[in-house]
Design a protein around this nucleic acid. Structure first.
Length: 645
RNA sequence: GCCUGUGUAGCUCAGUUGGCCAGAGCAGCUGAUUUGUAAUCAGCUGGUCGGGGGUUCGAAUCCCUCCACAGGCUCCA
């Protein structure tokens, strides 16, 4: 007998050779039916394999992320099996579980595969699933593994990088795949399957490598869950910022202007302006000085900064002047310009920190396939600022920026953000410029600042900017894709390259440290993510049109216009629906336009100088005097914005 | 840039074995209606079927090519 301890603290005695599944059966039949994976002594094990001895066991079902991972990982095997059956001669590479499903990268060896083929793959997968084939993991020697995959350069490469003695294959039915393990008991658990898309993916993510076809799929233990998931995707589509942006007339694109170059329509521009004013006010409080710099700069400037060497190919081609020796670049970054402003005058330690802020529009030649609505464009405006400070001031300045970012996220109700500390790649240091010593200092300053602020964060190695480590604030869009919004970056390198100096109290020259920071990130991306976050129902203070005044008939137009001009005097944004439509229609249109407040005015309201107030979404707030309504709105806006201290 | 798709009126979409003059709803315009909490009625306007080239007696439909968009891959705000 062996002793198995379970998460609830209980200890189960089971016979030698029992599997995780046997333990589940000894607890309850219901559990046994639902167990998808297990970990033994904190290591993932095969649920069907005998447990090696005493230890602690955790069983996972669909309700645990571990269970889903095993489920989708196993589904990837099922997909590979079906593809291999349908397309003889294809080469399999890798097929991991991902956030909402799985994919498999295959080389179709020239065979056609497109959307039209999805249903036959799904059908075959389900057919195979019904066989209830067990997944069996077995050890294999490196030599045998290489022999098995002779002729498949991808698997061969994977195996070569593995240690002999640790290599395992997974068999189910008559299908075998290189695999490290973690499977569901058998294929019968997979009840619903959907191939989502097929896309090109370079082997190991490197565009110099051959391109494979990545087949994306998802699967579920119940058909109803698949339906539910597809409905969720539909809902996400309704929240898509590209759709809402069009409907709410915020922005557009024109082929004639160019790819990735957003055109802000009046309502969108107004919204964006309000966001800018909001941040400018907070930045005034925080001691920033506004600066303004031009849209182009001499190429030499970016050669000095190192941007040209690193991002030259991602820039628009240089602009030439009639003077042949001159080359200008559409500015891809604002920092070199700000460095030159710093240098425009000698600086003393008494001047620091200096904080230059600019809503600077920058241009980057993103590959056409990269462009995506407002979240990835070729011309965008950063809410950029550069803080020049002494090394002693770095941590405090960094923390002040964190406060500013958190204030913004709080005001706009972004609760589900991820703070990511991005550090250098541990192995490859060649991607970065600057001394090890400075990198160490910068990385430590960020870590300390984040810990002292009590921020939840994850550390990502290799995600740093080429000139320094950073702290990024990531938010997910409607489809679950993660985008970087706010960013705070420490930089010892630009001060060096631009030979920035200040005179210390010791009358010696010293080098300042720079912080690059953009709490929104870019206005374009921020508006996009905000739009999806609130499904177009922006907070009242941001709404381009806050109030729709709806006269019952044109007899009350005069009163409606009078109310409108009164509201405008209070800096409120109202429109009067002058159409000869029925009230029901006017309300519907205002609802569809997501206007927060509707004021219905007719005979009664005109008589006693009141308003009949309706809130977007259907609630009737009843009758109110104009003064009370203004107070009501002011209170709502004040509650939304709060003060930055 | 590459892979897989998509592109018909301002918007959403029909037109899918090539065949009268390319359709609908919404929006817009004109008129009637003077209306009380999610769509009043009628009429009218609006299209180089993404651009170019080709096959054909005949192309939105088939072929080639370019462009844009969408979902991915690398990078990044």
């Amino acid at each position: 007998m062996i002793k198995i301890s379970l998460p609830d603290g209980s200890i189960k005695e089971v016979e030698n050779g029992s599997s995780a599944l046997d333990v589940a059966k000894s607890i309850s039949q219901g559990l046994a039916r639902n167990v998808l994976s297990a970990s033994f002594n904190e290591k993932t094990v095969e649920v069907n394999d005998p447990l090696p001895g005493d230890g602690s066991l955790v069983l996972y079902t669909w309700d645990n992320p571990e269970g889903k991972t095993a489920f989708w990982h196993s589904s990837a095997h099922l997909l590979a099996q079906a593809l291999a059956q349908l397309y003889p001669g294809i080469q399999l590479t890798i097929g991991p579980a991902i956030d909402n499903g799985f994919y498999y990268d295959v080389d179709f060896k020239g065979q056609e595969f497109g959307e039209a083929d999805f249903s036959k793959v799904e059908k075959l997968m389900l057919e195979n699933a019904r066989q209830k084939s067990e997944f069996k993991l077995r050890a294999i020697s490196k030599a045998d593994a290489l022999d098995f995959y002779k002729g498949n350069p991808f698997k061969t490469e994977l195996i070569e990088n593995l240690e002999d003695g640790t290599i395992t294959f997974c068999d189910h039915a008559n299908f075998t795949d290189l695999c490290r393990g973690g499977h569901i008991p058998n294929t019968g658990f997979i009840k619903a399957v959907k191939i989502m898309s097929v896309a090109g993916a370079y082997w190991r993510g490197n565009e110099k490598n051959p391109q494979l076809s990545r087949v994306y799929g998802t699967s579920f233990p119940k058909a109803a869950l698949l339906t539910e998931y597809l409905e969720l995707l539909e809902e996400a589509k309704r929240r898509d910022h590209r759709k809402l942006g069009k409907e709410l007339e915020l922005f557009t694109f024109s082929q004639k202007v160019g790819q990735g170059l957003p055109l802000w329509l009046p309502k969108g521009a107004e919204l964006r302006e309000r966001l800018e004013q909001f941040l400018k006010k907070a930045q005034r409080t925080a001691g920033y000085s506004p600066v303004i710099t031009p849209h182009i700069g001499n190429k030499e400037l970016y050669v000095t900064s190192g941007h040209y060497a690193k991002y030259g190919k991602d820039s628009f081609q240089p602009i030439r002047t009639p003077d042949e020796s001159e080359e200008y670049l559409l500015k891809p970054m604002n920092c070199p310009h700000h460095c030159e402003i710093y240098k425009s005058s000698p600086r003393s330690y008494r001047d620091l920190p200096i904080r230059y802020a600019e809503f600077g529009t920058v241009y980057r030649y993103e590959q056409s396939g990269e462009l995506h609505g407002l979240t990835r464009v070729r011309g965008f405006t950063q809410d950029d600022a550069h803080i020049f400070c002494t090394p002693d001031q770095l941590k405090a300045e960094f923390q002040k920026v964190i406060d500013l970012v958190l204030y913004i996220f709080k005001t706009l109700d972004f609760q589900n953000f991820t703070a990511q500390v991005s550090l250098r790649d541990k192995e490859d240091r060649s991607k970065y410029i600057g001394s090890d010593e400075n990198w160490e200092k910068a990385e430590n300053a960020i870590k300390e600042a984040v810990i002292e602020k009590g921020l939840d964060y994850v550390v990502e190695y290799g995600e740093a900017a080429f000139y320094g480590p950073k702290l990024d604030f990531m938010v997910k869009d409607a489809l679950g894709r993660q985008w970087q919004l706010g960013t705070i970056q420490v930089d010892y390198n630009l001060p060096e390259r631009f030979e920035l100096e200040y005179k210390g109290s010791d009358n010696e020259s010293h080098r300042p440290v720079m912080i690059h920071r953009a709490p929104f990130g870019s206005m374009e991306r921020f508006v996009a993510v905000l739009l999806e976050h609130c499904a177009g129902n922006f907070p009242l203070w941001l709404m381009p049109t806050q109030i729709a005044i709806l006269p019952i008939s044109d007899k009350y137009l005069d009163y409606a216009n009078k109310v409108s001009s009164l509201l405008k005097n209070y800096d409120l944004r109202a429109l009067v629906d002058q159409r000869a439509e029925k009230t029901g229609r006017k309300i519907r249109d205002a609802e569809v336009a997501k206007i927060p407040y509707m004021l219905i005015v007719g005979e009664k309201e005109e008589g006693d100088e009141t308003l009949s107030v309706r809130r977007h979404g259907g609630s009737d707030l009843g009758s109110m005097s104009i003064a009370d309504f203004i107070k009501h709105i002011d209170a709502e806006v004040a509650a939304e914005i709060g003060e930055f201290e």
